[in-house]
């Protein structure tokens, strides 16, 4: 049963990655694109954790943690760059 739930979750998370990519492409303003990138990073974390359950291994945990951290840092850097035209003042 978990396998079927995982198949459903793979489909749903892959679809949400595509939707976030669509917003990244059409986003009318730069804030929407930053938000779409943040959503892409969070959805990638979800996908990696799901694949970790599917493959029955703990190997992918570090990748998920790293993508979560880098997604946050890049979101903050983009937002600060838009706000102040400078990342490190």
């Amino acid at each position: 049963m978990i396998t079927y739930a995982l198949y459903f979750a793979f489909t749903a998370v892959g679809l949400s990655l595509l939707l976030a990519m669509w917003r990244l492409l059409i986003g009318p303003d730069v804030g929407d694109r930053v938000l779409a990138l943040d959503t892409l990073a969070i959805n990638a974390v979800a996908l990696i954790v799901l694949y970790g359950i599917y493959a029955q291994t703990q190997t992918y945990f570090e990748a998920a943690l790293l993508i979560a951290m880098l997604g946050f840092v890049s979101t903050v850097a983009y937002a600060r760059f838009v706000l102040r035209r400078d990342v490190i003042e």
């Binding site: 459903f8 489909t11 749903a12 679809l15 949400s16 939707l19 976030a20 959503t39 969070i42 959805n43």
Partner: peptide, 11 residues
């Protein structure tokens, strides 16, 4: 999965 999909759909 449903919440992730709903979040991106709302986006």
């Amino acid at each position: 999965a449903v919440f992730t999909l709903v979040g991106s759909w709302g986006l």
